[in-house]
């Protein structure tokens, strides 16, 4: 399955990305190539995951890599639109304790 990534530069240093499809061992490199070069100069990156149907540990690794890069340069990585399954994954890994996660739908999710 293919991954579709849309990128929108909102303002200088504010970038919004939306991801669509399955992020797994085959498609994660696509996300990495898009996301990691943006992680510099203290940018604020919002990644909308509302159209992500599945993310495996490799995909999660890409988000962790981006989080670490942002942390190192005082930037910010915000994740939005996570479905119940993704929320569970972030809860089990306890990444929800350290990463910025915004509930776009405004409630109704785990």
């Amino acid at each position: 399955m293919n991954l579709v990534i849309h990128e929108k530069i909102e303002k200088e240093n504010r970038i919004a990305i939306s991801v669509e499809g399955e992020v797994d061992v085959y498609t994660a490199p696509q996300l990495r190539e898009k996301l990691l070069p943006l992680c510099q100069g203290g940018s604020q990156i919002t990644v909308n995951l509302s159209k992500v149907t599945y993310i495996d540990s490799t995909g999660l690794g890409v988000l962790i890599g981006a989080y670490k890069a942002q942390r190192a340069t005082s930037g910010k990585l915000v994740l939005t639109g996570m479905n119940a399954r993704l929320n569970r994954l972030f809860k089990i890994t306890n990444l929800n304790q350290i990463m910025d996660i915004e509930d776009q739908a405004g409630g109704g999710q785990l």
């Binding site: 962790i64 989080y67 304790q97 350290i98």
Partner: peptide
């Protein structure tokens, strides 16, 4: 229970 963060992040 699962209360600790994955290894290698923080």
């Amino acid at each position: 229970k699962t209360r600790g963060l994955v290894l290698g992040v923080s």
